[in-house]
């Protein structure tokens, strides 16, 4: 809705304010050009998607592994967290060219950058989620004879799921941007490099078309996480139905 209004206002402004399309193209023109250049856009979106997904997969694996490590060995937490926090304060603009310098123009620097920007929200969410486990559940499981690993798998991990998905949703919105930044700093192909070239050729309409594609990618990924959460946490929706007043009585 609000996006629609914004587009209408933009369209009107671009058409009637006398501003040149080489400065601010109207959305209709961006859309037209996007259709015309769809092959190049798709061609360049594919490496970006690949970098995003692979980088994100690494990040996900690292976040789970480290969160578990930190959960099982509490002292590590104090040692490692400052490092993670510093990793989040690094300005992407400065770090992206360095990562490309170290890892070349291939897929690796993109994976590294995507992982770097997406890893922290998931790690923090997981660690916080484990901590949120109800103390009584832990005590009960130990009274049943469960060891630490059992308690983790039966209680701490499922307790962390809502937190994890909250972190995942934040991370996924950074992921595409991370990949584009890496490409901006140096790549043969990709939405980032496409934007750079379009800008250098004074084609803001094509820059915006690429922005639109990256936004659409992010939206799709975001939608996937929402879907995944529904599938992974069916009890949440059951609880929602109960709140709506259709539940059984004692």
């Amino acid at each position: 809705m609000s996006v629609g209004l914004l587009l209408v206002a933009w369209e009107l402004y671009a058409n009637y304010s006398g501003i040149k399309p080489t400065i601010l193209p109207a959305p209709s023109r961006v859309f037209e050009q996007a259709i015309l250049n769809r092959e190049a856009l798709v061609d360049n979106a594919i490496p970006t998607i690949r970098a995003t997904l692979i980088g994100f997969a690494f990040s996900l694996g690292a976040a789970f592994a480290l969160s578990m490590l930190v959960d099982f060995f509490q002292p590590l937490r104090r040692a490692l967290f400052p490092v993670f926090i510093v990793s989040q304060t690094l300005p992407l603009v400065a770090i992206a060219p360095l990562v490309v310098l170290w890892f070349g123009f291939g897929l690796t620097p993109k994976i590294v950058l995507v992982a770097l920007v997406t890893f922290f929200p998931m790690l923090v969410a997981l660690v916080q989620g484990y901590e949120a486990t109800e103390a009584e559940i832990g005590q009960m499981l130990r009274a049943m004879g469960a060891g630490r690993w059992r308690v983790f798998m039966l209680a701490r991990l499922p307790s962390a799921l809502p937190y994890f998905f909250a972190g995942l949703r934040i991370s996924i919105t950074y992921a595409v941007v991370g990949a584009i930044f890496a490409e901006y700093a140096g790549a043969a192909k990709g939405l980032g490099i496409y934007m750079l070239n379009a800008k250098n050729n004074f084609r803001p309409d094509l820059v915006l078309a690429a922005v639109g594609v990256s936004a659409a990618l992010t939206l799709v990924l975001f939608g996937l996480t929402v879907l995944l959460q529904r599938l992974a946490m069916p009890w949440e929706r059951a609880a929602g139905r109960q709140a709506a007043g259709k539940g059984p009585q004692a």
Partner: peptide, 10 residues
Amino acid sequence: HFPAQLSAGM
């Protein structure tokens, strides 16, 4: 059923 779907007594 999930626990959230039960009454307190149940």
